[in-house]
Design a protein around this nucleic acid. Sequence first.
DNA 1: ATTCTCACA
DNA 2: TGTGAGAA
Length: 139
Amino acid sequence: MSDDIRRNMALFPIGIVMKLTDLTARQIRYYEQHGLIEPTRTSGNQRLYSFNDVERLLEVKALIEKGVNIAGIRQVLANGGEGNTEAAVLSTTTERKSREMTDTQLHQMLKQQLRAGRRPGQVSLIQGELSRFFPKRGL
DNA sequence: ATTCTCACA
DNA sequence: TGTGAGAA
């Protein structure tokens, strides 16, 4: 499954993740402290998040907005660790249909987020990052 | 310019 | 959780 390594390949810094998830750096780090995500620390202790991390963060965000606390989210994500997060969510919460992100949908979402946070002159970096994920497909 | 850790309002 | 300080 090379697709798996692709999704787990950490490549964006917290700044990008902030735009992608609409979470503050504080929150992102806070969730990490509570074991909700485990980004890799590549450079000088800089956090690098993978696509899976971003997706996970989005789930966390959704659950937080639903009023679920860290402990609750933990249980949701606990049932499967790195693989069956979706199953856990689907069986534990009320959002059976609202949370089912296919690859295509994820790609679309990322494009939207990217467009929304676009600031003339400094997006080339982000596009460059994403191109690693969508080498041939249209971005 | 960005991100990191730590501590305090 | 937010914010600011001080360093990488």
